[in-house]
Amino acid sequence: MKRIVRAIAATVLGVAVATGAAACSLMGDSSVPVATAKPPTGTDGAVNFDGGYLSAGTGEKKVDIWFDAMCPFCGEFERTNGATLSNAVKDDSVTVRLHPITFLDSRSNGTGYSTRAAAALVCVGVHDQNKVLDYYQALFADQPEEGSSGLTDDELAKRATDLGIADISGCITRSGPYQAWAQANTVHSQNGPIEVDGRKVLDSIQGTPTVLVNGKQYPGSVTDKKAFAAFLGN
């Protein structure tokens, strides 16, 4: 199967048409999952449950990324710009804040892959906060294609242990609240408003990846490394 997003997920957003960028669209998708458990609140490790994100780094400049683990454009963005972000985190110039959403659950043969991958990332954030960005990037290495069943829970756990993270398989098994949190993030991403550090920056998230640097949305192509590096450096 080719790496394309079918039906509504193939929609190119208006801003994307104007700039040459592409994204997996959330507009009009009626299959956004509804949380069935009580999401956690507060903070735990790298996870800010109230803010809807996981943090990597301590830099003054803030990079916020809304993503779905099954979205091929998110994978393209990560494979193109992941090293740039990793280096910026390592030199303490940026803090990356990851906002997992799950609207492509309906494209994983009933396995709820987007939700399960988001919950696995939370497990890492709680158990080894210094590996959050590494695990996020590992989710896009040999990324499962949209329309596949995605990675199994065992495979999600293995991607953590391959990075030297403690076994998260038990956490994944008990991750109902984390899954509910990711699903609630998805609902909020469509309902809005989207705030960064207490300031409204968008009415809603219309597609993934949506990338903001200090609250300003990156308008360029997900595969233009130079354009993103320049935007990040401004």
Rank of each mutant, 00 (worst) to 15 (best):
E78Y: 11
G125I: 00
G75W: 13
A83Q: 09
R97W: 10
H127T: 15
T84V: 07
H99E: 08
V96N: 13
R79Y: 15
C71D: 14
S108Q: 02
N109C: 08
P100N: 06
D92N: 12
Q129H: 14
T111F: 04
I101K: 06
T84R: 04
F77G: 06
R116M: 14
R107Q: 13
N81F: 10
G110F: 08
V89N: 10
G125L: 00
A88F: 11
P100M: 01
S86G: 15
Q129T: 09
H99L: 07
N130R: 07
A83K: 15
H99Y: 10
V126L: 05
D105N: 11
A88P: 04
G75D: 09
F103E: 10
C71I: 14
S93H: 11
G110C: 02
L104G: 00
T95G: 06
L104R: 09
A117C: 02
V94H: 05
Y113K: 10
A83L: 08
C74A: 14
R107G: 10
T80V: 12
S106D: 15
G75R: 06
L121Y: 04
I101G: 06
V89T: 09
S93C: 07
T84M: 04
D128K: 08
R107N: 14
R79S: 14
S86A: 13
P72F: 11
F77E: 03
L98K: 01
D91C: 07
A117G: 01
G75K: 12
A118E: 03
T115A: 06
M70P: 08
G125C: 00
E76P: 05
N130H: 13
G125M: 00
T84D: 12
P100L: 02
D91W: 01
V122G: 01
R97H: 05
T80R: 03
T102F: 03
T115P: 02
G112M: 10
A119N: 03
E78W: 07
